[in-house]
């Protein structure tokens, strides 16, 4: 990891957390689609970062977001799960595309298609866990699933759009 990458990562955290807390927290489309754009903090961490550090960072991000949502634990739990599953998907995608020495997680290096799948799958897992923890029962199964579906789309599109605007 170079100094440049570290600075980039810090900037990434600040950008997505600020966006989440200031803007997307107030943005809910039709009471259905939530946008938890902060998952990009964890998703876009450099792939070779150690697992331990990734888990701790994810927990930290989750707690900070929880603080602003007044739901201590929920975002943290979902984010830690996300961080734990992330390397498996990266490895799976790398295996599919053939061996590459170094994977850079960005839309410009991966191409829109695989980047989109990467974001979509992990965002879906995160939102699924988060919204079901929040619903706290299987009574609202169908409404929650609808919410998960639309929120996943909304978050994925937001992250990809933001990627286009932050090239470096």
């Amino acid at each position: 990891m170079t100094i440049r990458e570290i600075i980039n990562t810090i900037f990434l955290f600040l950008l997505y957390l600020t966006l989440q807390i200031l803007i997307f927290r107030n943005l809910v489309l039709f009471d259905l689609a939530f946008c938890f754009v902060y998952v990009a903090c964890i998703l876009l961490l450099p792939a070779e970062l150690s697992m331990t550090l990734t888990l701790l960072l994810a927990f930290g991000v989750g707690v900070v977001v929880d603080m602003f949502y007044n739901t201590l634990g929920m975002h943290a739990a979902a984010s830690v799960l996300l961080a734990y599953l992330r390397p498996y998907l990266i490895r799976f995608q790398a295996a599919q595309r053939g061996f590459e020495s170094r994977i850079v997680l960005s839309i410009h290096e991966m191409g829109l298609r695989s980047f989109f799948y990467y974001i979509l799958v992990l965002t879906f897992v995160h939102h699924f866990v988060l919204l079901f923890i929040e619903a706290n029962s299987l009574m609202l199964l169908l409404p929650t699933l609808v919410k998960v579906f639309f929120s996943t789309l909304f978050t994925t599109l937001s992250i990809i759009l933001i990627q286009y605007f932050t090239k470096n």
Binding site: L55, A77, V80
Partner: peptide, 29 residues
């Protein structure tokens, strides 16, 4: 890493279930 993962998840769920715990009431809200 797996142990850390389990620990963090247990901690998170402890926070979620115990909504009135000291940490969430005093600091993280």
């Amino acid at each position: 890493n797996f142990i850390l993962f389990i620990l963090l998840e247990v901690l998170s769920f402890y926070f979620i279930i115990n909504t009135n715990n000291y940490w969430s009431v005093e600091f993280f809200n």
